[in-house]
Amino acid sequence: MTAEEDDGPMAEDRGRFPRSVFEEGEDPDPRFSLANERTFLAWIRTGLAFVAAGVAVEALQLPLTAWLRATISVLLVLAGIAATAQAWLAWVRTERAMRRLAPLPSSGLKLPIALLLGLVGLAVVVGLLL
């Protein structure tokens, strides 16, 4: 490999945003990057759905005890925030791992999201019984 090649597109690559992803490694198969992009979008949509559900619970004034309704909608919106964070976090970590030929990262924020949704389910059950 010549010095010219070293200063070519690869050097430009290293400066790409975000640095933490592109400073190391080689571009993986474009199909894998595209799949990572679609997973990002799936998390974004998931987050939007949680947020929309949380807003709807309050905006439509579902017939539940006031404090329970507030709890359910706040928990749903928090799950939406967590899912949005997960979208970006997982995209960065996965792209970085693929560039370095490292094992793909595991859960990220999936556990907190699952716990929030579990609490939402619990609150709905309590609401139905009250």
């Binding site: 939007l48 947020v51 928090l78 925030i81």
Partner: peptide, 21 residues
């Protein structure tokens, strides 16, 4: 940009939900 827009929507929703509640 997409994640940022989604985060703004989510934070605005949190404010809305807290205020309405």
């Amino acid at each position: 940009r997409t994640a940022g827009a989604a985060a703004v929507v989510a934070l605005a929703a949190l404010a809305f939900v807290v205020v309405v509640a």
